[in-house]
């Protein structure tokens, strides 16, 4: 019996890093583009992404140019990853 632990470990490591990295990157892109709420953030701060339909938003302002640019950078990196994925499928 010859179990290829190295390959299994590699698959695990690569999958974990790629998934967490891409999801993190893409979420940063989303957050970068989302307008900021200038108040009332503390009240729901501890919870995860608020799904409240009641829209408890305070004043909403546009995302800053820097944040937007950062968001685009994140999206671009994700696109590169997708292109690499397609390349892997075709290769």
């Amino acid at each position: 019996m010859d179990i290829d632990w190295a390959a299994l470990g590699q698959v695990f490591g690569v999958s974990l890093v790629a998934t967490v990295g891409l999801v993190g990157l893409f979420t940063l892109g989303i957050v970068g583009h989302a307008p900021r709420r200038t108040q009332d953030t503390a009240s729901s701060g501890s919870a995860a992404a608020a799904a409240s339909p009641a829209g408890s938003a305070g004043r909403v302002s546009q995302a800053s140019p820097v944040a937007r640019a950062g968001g685009y950078l994140c999206y671009a990196l994700c696109l590169v990853a997708v292109a690499y994925g397609i390349y892997l499928i075709a290769a």
Binding site: L16, T19, G24, T27, I30, V31, A48, A49, A50
Partner: peptide
């Protein structure tokens, strides 16, 4: 493998987007 990766990624994305409103992130997701 997929479950652990997905678990970590789910935790991370909720944490990163915790200050964002759902309507703002829906399109991105």
């Amino acid at each position: 493998v997929a479950g652990i990766a997905s678990l970590c990624a789910t935790r991370l994305t909720y944490r990163l987007a915790r200050h964002a409103q759902e309507e703002q992130t829906a399109k991105g997701y």
